[in-house]
Amino acid sequence: TIEDAIKKLLKLAQKGQPYTFGDFTVTSEEEAKKLAKWLKKQL
């Protein structure tokens, strides 16, 4: 689910690992949080 993807994304971001989700490449926890907010709006 999208919720699971968001959780995984935040965990990876906390470890400092870049994470690619579709067109987004997230390289920081701050970016992960922005992406998570955006994804929730898409639901």
Rank of each mutant, 00 (worst) to 15 (best):
T1N: 09
T1G: 04
T1W: 14
T1H: 06
T1F: 09
T1S: 08
T1Q: 12
T1M: 10
I2Q: 02
I2N: 01
I2K: 01
I2D: 02
I2Y: 12
I2P: 06
I2A: 08
E3K: 12
E3N: 06
E3V: 14
E3F: 15
E3C: 15
D4Y: 07
D4F: 04
A5F: 15
A5H: 11
A5K: 08
A5R: 08
A5Y: 14
A5T: 09
I6P: 00
I6H: 01
I6V: 02
I6S: 00
I6Q: 00
K7W: 09
K7Y: 06
K7E: 15
K7P: 00
K7R: 12
K7I: 08
K7L: 11
K8L: 14
K8S: 04
K8R: 07
K8E: 14
K8C: 13
K8N: 08
L9D: 00
L9G: 00
L9P: 00
L9W: 11
L9H: 01
L9R: 00
L9N: 00
L10C: 12
L10K: 03
L10E: 04
L10A: 02
L10V: 05
L10S: 02
K11T: 14
K11I: 14
K11S: 13
K11C: 15
K11P: 02
K11D: 14
K11W: 13
L12C: 15
L12P: 02
L12K: 06
L12T: 05
L12Y: 12
L12S: 06
L12R: 07
L12V: 04
A13E: 03
A13R: 04
A13D: 03
A13F: 10
A13M: 08
A13Y: 05
A13S: 05
A13C: 15
Q14S: 10
Q14D: 06
Q14V: 07
Q14H: 07
Q14N: 09
Q14K: 07
Q14I: 09
K15I: 12
K15Q: 09
K15N: 13
K15H: 11
K15A: 12
K15R: 09
K15D: 14
G16I: 11
G16F: 14
G16L: 14
G16Q: 03
Q17A: 07
Q17K: 08
Q17W: 14
Q17S: 03
Q17C: 15
Q17H: 10
P18H: 09
P18Y: 10
P18W: 14
P18Q: 06
P18N: 06
P18V: 07
P18F: 06
P18K: 03
Y19R: 01
Y19T: 07
Y19W: 12
Y19Q: 07
Y19I: 14
Y19M: 07
T20H: 05
T20L: 12
T20P: 14
T20I: 07
T20A: 08
T20N: 07
T20D: 11
T20K: 07
T20W: 10
T20S: 03
F21M: 04
F21W: 14
F21V: 07
F21D: 02
F21L: 06
F21T: 03
F21C: 15
F21P: 01
F21S: 02
G22E: 11
G22Q: 04
G22H: 03
G22K: 05
G22F: 13
G22M: 15
G22Y: 14
G22N: 11
G22S: 10
D23H: 08
D23S: 13
F24Q: 12
F24G: 02
F24M: 03
F24C: 15
F24Y: 05
F24I: 10
F24A: 12
T25V: 13
T25D: 02
T25F: 10
T25Y: 13
T25Q: 06
V26I: 11
V26P: 04
V26G: 02
V26R: 03
V26Y: 06
T27N: 07
T27H: 05
T27I: 08
T27V: 08
T27S: 07
S28V: 10
S28I: 12
S28W: 06
S28A: 04
E29M: 15
E29A: 10
E29V: 11
E29I: 10
E30D: 11
E30L: 07
E30N: 09
E30S: 12
E30Q: 07
E30H: 08
E30V: 08
E31W: 11
E31A: 08
E31D: 13
E31C: 12
E31H: 05
E31T: 05
A32S: 03
A32Y: 07
K33T: 05
K33S: 05
K33I: 13
K33Q: 09
K33C: 11
K34I: 07
K34W: 12
K34Q: 09
K34L: 08
K34H: 09
L35V: 04
L35A: 00
L35H: 00
L35S: 01
L35N: 00
L35K: 00
L35C: 02
L35T: 01
L35D: 00
L35Q: 00
A36N: 02
A36K: 03
A36F: 14
A36D: 03
A36T: 05
K37C: 15
K37M: 12
K37P: 00
K37S: 11
K37W: 11
K37E: 13
K37N: 10
W38T: 01
W38A: 02
W38S: 01
W38Q: 01
W38I: 03
W38M: 05
W38K: 02
W38Y: 05
W38D: 01
W38V: 01
L39P: 00
L39D: 00
L39Y: 02
L39C: 00
L39Q: 00
K40E: 12
K40H: 11
K40G: 08
K40S: 11
K40P: 01
K40M: 14
K40Y: 14
K40L: 14
K41F: 06
K41D: 14
K41V: 06
K41T: 09
K41E: 14
K41A: 11
K41I: 08
Q42K: 06
Q42G: 05
Q42M: 14
Q42H: 10
Q42T: 09
L43V: 06
L43G: 03
L43I: 06
L43Q: 05
L43E: 04
L43H: 07
L43T: 02
